[in-house]
C-alpha cells in the first residue's frame, strides 16, 4: 500500500531521529488549519454578552475577567499546538501523547470557569479522559508489540494481523474517550453559551480534527487492501 492513495501525493518527510513527520496535502491542510485557528485565538479578544437585567430596564454586560482570560488563552494555545502536532506526526506514540495532552488541556479550559456545574462537568470529563488512557496507550503498545514498530510509514508495509486490528480498535476507543467526547461535556455545562467562545472553539476543533486524523491512522494500520 502507498500513502499517496490516502491523503494525496507525499510532499516530504522531516526525519527527526526516530520521530518522522510526513506531509501529504491532507496532513498539511489540517496542520495549517489548526495553526491558523490557534493564531487567531492568540490574538483575539473574547466576546461579551449583553443580558437584560431582571426587574429593571437596564442591561448587564457579561465578560471574561482578566485572570481567567489569560489562563484560558494559554491553555487554548497549547491545545491548538498539540492538535497541529497530532496532525503531522508520523509516529504512533507521538500521536497518543499529543491526544493525551489535548485531553488534559481541555479539562483545564473547561475547568477555568469557576462554577459548580461547570466544575462538575469537567470532573466527569476528567474521569472519562483518565479511563481512556488505558485503551489509548494500551492500543499503541499492542500495536508496537505486534508490529515491532510505531512509525506509521513502517506500519504501512506490515501485513494485517488480528492483534493490530485489536490494538487499533483500542486506540480508536481511546481517542474517542480522550478528545471525542470533549464537546459534549462542554455542552453539558452550557459552556458554549458562556462568554469566551474562542477558547471553547479549540475543544471542538481538536476533537474533530483528531478524529479525522485517527481515521487516516486506522486506515494505515488496517490496510483493507
Amino acid at each position: 500500500m502507498d500513502i499517496s492513495i490516502l491523503g494525496g501525493q507525499m510532499l516530504g518527510i522531516i526525519p527527526l531521529g526516530d520521530i518522522v513527520l510526513y506531509f501529504t496535502p491532507f496532513n498539511l491542510f489540517m496542520f495549517a488549519a489548526a495553526l491558523a485557528f490557534t493564531t487567531l485565538i492568540a490574538i483575539s479578544k473574547t466576546e461579551s454578552q449583553v443580558e437584560a437585567e431582571f426587574g429593571t430596564l437596564k442591561n448587564r454586560e457579561v465578560k471574561v475577567d482578566k485572570s481567567e482570560f489569560k489562563i484560558r488563552r494559554f491553555l487554548a494555545i497549547v491545545c491548538g499546538l498539540a492538535t497541529a502536532g497530532a496532525m503531522v506526526t508520523g509516529d504512533l506514540f507521538d500521536f497518543t501523547l499529543f491526544v493525551a495532552l489535548i485531553a488534559i488541556v481541555n479539562i483545564g479550559i473547561v475547568a477555568a470557569v469557576k462554577e459548580v456545574d461547570v466544575l462538575d462537568s469537567a470532573f466527569q470529563y476528567g474521569l472519562i479522559a483518565m479511563i481512556a488512557t488505558l485503551p489509548l496507550f494500551g492500543g499503541a503498545a499492542i500495536i508496537l508489540a505486534s508490529a515491532g514498530t510505531i512509525s506509521l510509514l513502517q506500519l504501512l508495509q506490515i501485513p494485517n494481523s488480528t492483534m493490530i486490528l485489536y490494538g487499533s480498535l483500542l486506540l480508536f476507543i481511546g481517542v474517542a474517550g480522550e478528545t471525542g467526547v470533549a464537546p459534549f461535556f462542554a455542552t453539558k455545562a452550557e459552556m458554549f453559551r458562556t462568554p469566551g467562545s474562542p477558547f471553547l472553539l479549540i475543544i471542538h476543533l481538536s476533537s474533530l480534527l483528531v478524529i479525522v486524523r485517527t481515521i487516516e491512522i486506522l486506515l494505515i494500520l488496517n490496510k483493507p487492501f
Binding site: 496535502p25 491532507f26 489540517m30 476543533l205 481515521i215
Partner: peptide, 14 residues
C-alpha cells in the same frame, strides 16, 4: 484526495 474533503468538512463545522 477524498480524505481532504473530510477534513474540509470538519473545519466547515468548526
Amino acid at each position: 484526495s477524498l480524505l481532504l474533503f473530510f477534513a474540509i468538512y470538519a473545519i466547515h463545522k468548526i
